[in-house]
Amino acid sequence: MRATLRQAARATVHLFLAAAMAFGSYLFITVLLIAATGAVSGVGIWLLPETVLLIRRIAGAKRRLTASWTGREIPEAYRTVTGPLRERLRTAVGDPGTLTDLRWMGAYYAYGWLTLLMLPLWPVGLLVDGVRRALLGREALVLPLLVRLADLEAGWSAALLRPSPQALLAGRVEQLTATRADAVAAHGAELRRIERDLHDGAQARLVALSMRIGLAQRAYGADPDTARKLLTDAQDQAEEALTELRHVVRGIHPPILTDRGLEGAVRALAGSSGLGVTVRTDLLPDGPRAPAAVEAAAYFVIAEALTNASKYSGSDRAEVVLARSRTGLSVRVCDEGCGGVDESAGSGLLGMRRRVAALDGTVRVTSPVGGPTVIEVELPCVW
Score class of each variant (00 low, 15 high):
R138T: 13
G38E: 04
A297Q: 07
L27T: 01
T51Y: 03
A202V: 14
T115P: 01
A186L: 06
R353E: 05
W156F: 15
G361C: 07
S273H: 02
L54E: 06
P368H: 11
L121R: 06
L359P: 04
P96D: 11
E153Y: 02
L168S: 00
L54V: 02
G340V: 08
R132C: 09
I302W: 05
L27W: 06
A181V: 15
E239P: 00
A154L: 10
G276Q: 11
R332V: 01
L15E: 05
R6G: 00
V341G: 02
G94S: 07
L141S: 09
S313D: 09
Y26K: 04
L135Y: 03
S272R: 13
A8D: 07
S25M: 14
R56D: 13
L275T: 00
S313R: 08
A241R: 08
Y26P: 01
T177L: 15
G221A: 14
T4G: 00
W383F: 14
L65Y: 04
V52T: 01
A22L: 03
L176M: 11
F28V: 00
T366I: 01
H199K: 12
A167I: 12
L85M: 13
L152W: 15
A318V: 01
A305Q: 05
L231P: 01
A216K: 08
R64L: 13
T12M: 03
A170P: 05
A183C: 00
A183I: 01
A159Q: 12
L257C: 10
A18L: 15
R148M: 03
L283T: 03
E378P: 00
T258L: 00
V93C: 06
V248L: 09
A216R: 08
L242K: 13
A77M: 10
D101A: 15
P163V: 14
D151W: 03
L32C: 08
D282N: 14
Q166K: 08
I213C: 10
L262P: 05
W156V: 09
A67E: 10
A358T: 02
T12F: 05
T70Q: 09
L230H: 12
G201T: 11
S330E: 13
A59W: 03
R6F: 01
T226Y: 04
R205V: 13
G351E: 10
V331P: 02
A140N: 06
W104F: 15
D236K: 11
A140W: 08
Q237P: 00
T243L: 02
P288C: 07
D223T: 04
R205H: 09
L89V: 12
R289M: 05
A189P: 08
C381N: 03
T258W: 00
R72Y: 13
L191S: 12
S313Q: 05
E376D: 13
L176A: 15
L47H: 06
L149H: 09
L121V: 11
I45H: 07
K229R: 15
S68K: 01
F28H: 14
R267P: 07
N308F: 02
R192P: 01
